[in-house]
Write a protein that binds this DNA or RNA. Structure first.
Length: 577
RNA sequence: GCCAAAGUAGUUCAGUGGCAGAACAGUCGCUUCGUAAGCGAUAAACGUGGGUUCGAUUCCCGCCUUUGGCUCCA
């Protein structure tokens, strides 16, 4: 039995063979296995389109039916160079492998194709189910992932053990697309992106704005409960500030300055950290008052590259739930733990279980990349890892991925089509406090430098909402739903009674709509269900007589009649806390 | 930014080198209805700027936007 990995890897070779047959002048890149399939990068002598994929697929199937053997061969550097003459990318790889003293192997597919490869194939192409794979799409990809290198054409394929699994997967992707937040955002009238305003600058309809507010208010309230205090800072700032922070030199996503006649240049802020720092610095601080925990939710603007924008998950107007903790070095562990508590509470509340944490640490072999004391690094990294392990959260250690100023914890979520997005982030910072000369006075009256912890729970309200919409498929729980209940009078005769109930619910703080349109009850129920409103209140002659309401719960159906006060009580039980 | 594809009513989708079609949503009537689509009428679109052509929504080029990737990132 061949493993899926072997099948996928072998298919990548067959793809390369098929491409070479059709375009003999093609230069080969690499062709690895990925989740659900494989890809192969080519420098093609001409441009191709999706329409060319079926032909390549057909050729691959033909090769499978030929029953070709995969055979490995050890190569000397000289032989390898000769074998892959005319393949510049392969030559580059050979040089690299020789330099790294890796052994060189080639794999032959029958006698029709040979690739530089470390192996991991099926024994014979007959082991591959010709109905179990499909070439899906093309994409550009830089050689070795660097913008400076030439762009190759990447052909992606899906591959599974058999036709049924492949079809199941395709069907699942179709289903997932229905939950795409960009689609739901339009259907549920949450947000819109219009040409005249600009790409990456979403506008929010009332329902979307209410959703934003509910999420942000929840976070704000929760933070204050955990001991964080709000601050407020403006949206534009003099360049001076970002000169101190170093962003002006290093950060390339800033919008260009606003030029004024007789004044310094002003900038739209791409982040608020420096503002926090300035505010901290404006007062003297004693060791006794630390930690100082400040939060601020506001919008920053970054000119992200146009090709990277995507719905709400990648935008140019970014609302961050920014938080900075100013602490003594001995308080780091306690503060991180508090932040993790806060994050855990939020994730539970929103039902997020599927995420993983990247613990980005420094690279001890490359100390020059980082600033600060090695001991502090080690200690804080150990503390971070320990705290994450204790919670049993899925995590990976990213050695060398820390920022130059300190280690990080990033919380990664997947969207509906499998792309990963970073939401929450916790970063230890020992650099900015130095640049901004942030200090506190210790017990001996001496000035000491402190540590800043940057943290965002939502990361950005926009991205969080994008992921949340997909996570819930747009069916928000009652406490988050922009409209919690909709009242449907059965006929015109109950209009007055429906109005009365509407006012009663509104006064009880329930986000309510009334639909007395001249449409059948069935149709109005259908509309409300499609809008994913959690509760539908039906009032007819019976309800009016008994002074009750009939409550229908989304997806579940009719719960029966009850007095309005009982319904209000039920819905209020689901408050954010 | 780069590679590739796509842009037709509000939405989903047809279609054509010679007057642009449907469904749903909208509007106006009729109907007053008991838990996922009542009936009829009506308004509404070829992203944008050039070019080819007697004539372009259709063919070609640029731009804009979107989608899928690459790099970057919350």
């Amino acid at each position: 039995m061949s493993s899926l990995e072997e099948i996928r890897h072998s298919l990548a070779h067959l793809l390369a063979a098929a491409v070479l047959k059709k375009y003999p002048k093609t230069k080969l890149g690499i062709g690895p296995v990925i989740e659900n399939g494989f890809y192969y990068d080519f420098l093609l002598p001409q441009s191709i389109s999706d329409a060319d994929l079926p032909e390549l697929e057909k050729e691959m199937r033909r090769l499978i039916h030929l029953g070709l053997d995969f055979k490995g061969e050890k190569l000397t550097p000289i032989k390898a160079k000769k074998m892959f003459r005319g393949q510049p990318f392969k030559q580059e790889l050979i040089k690299e492998f020789v330099k790294e003293k890796k052994s060189l192997t080639a794999y032959h597919t029958g006698d029709i194709f040979t690739d530089l490869c470390r192996g991991g194939h099926v024994k014979n192409t007959k082991k591959i189910n010709p109905e179990g794979f499909k070439l899906t799409h093309l994409a550009g990809a830089y050689w070795k992932g660097s913008e400076k290198n030439p762009m190759l054409t990447r052909i992606y394929g899906l591959a599974f053990a058999d036709k049924k699994t492949l079809e199941d997967h395709l069907r699942m992707m179709e289903e997932a697309k229905k939950r795409d937040h960009r689609k739901l955002g339009k259907e549920l009238q949450l947000f819109e992106i219009v040409d005249e305003v600009g790409p990456g600058l979403p506008l929010f309809y009332p329902k979307g704005a209410i959703l934003r507010r509910l999420v942000e208010n929840y976070i704000t309230e929760l933070q204050e409960r955990h001991g964080y205090l709000p601050i407020w800072v403006p949206h534009i700032t003099k360049g001076e500030l970002y000169k101190i922070s170093g962003h002006l030199d290093k950060y390339d996503a800033m919008y260009p300055p606003m030029k004024l006649k007789d004044e310094a240049d002003y900038y739209l802020k791409p982040m608020s950290c420096p503002h926090f720092m300035m505010l901290y610095k404006s007062l003297p601080h004693s060791y006794k008052e630390l930690p100082v925990r400040w939060t601020y939710t506001g919008t920053v603007y970054r000119h992200e590259k146009s090709g990277e924008l995507s719905g709400l998950t990648r935008v140019r107007s970014i609302s961050q739930d920014d938080c900075h903790v100013f602490a003594r070095p001995d308080q780091i562990e306690q503060e991180i733990n508090l932040l993790l508590d806060t994050i855990e509470e939020v994730y539970k509340k929103f039902g997020f279980n599927d995420f993983w944490v990247r613990i980005s640490t420094h690279d001890p072999k490359n100390k020059s990349k980082y600033i600060g004391d090695e001991k502090v690094w080690q200690k804080s990294e150990e503390a971070l890892t320990h705290l994450i392990q204790k919670r049993g959260w899925k995590h990976e250690i990213g050695v060398g991925e820390a920022a130059f100023y300190g280690p990080k914890l990033d919380f990664i979520f997947k969207d509906v089509i499998g792309r990963e997005w970073q939401l929450s982030t916790i970063q230890l910072d020992m650099n900015l406090p130095k640049r901004f000369e942030l200090e506190y006075t210790d017990a001996e009256g001496k000035k000491r430098q402190l540590v800043v912890i940057h943290r965002a729970i939502l990361g950005s309200t926009e991205r969080f909402l994008g992921i949340l919409i997909e996570h819930l498929g747009g069916a928000f729980p009652a406490w988050l739903a922009p409209v919690q209940a909709i009242i449907l009078p059965i006929s015109e005769k109950q209009k007055d009674y429906a109005d009365k109930i509407f006012i009663q619910l509104k006064n009880a703080g329930i986000r309510t709509e009334l639909n007395d349109a001249n449409e059948s009850l069935g149709k109005r129920i259908r509309q409300a269900e499609m809008e994913k409103i959690p509760y539908i209140i039906v009032v007819g002659a019976d309800e009016e007589t008994n002074k009750t309401v009939s409550v229908r719960e989304r997806q579940k159906g009719n719960l029966g009649a009850m007095i309005p006060e009982k319904f209000i009580e039920e819905i209020n039980k689901q408050a954010p806390r």
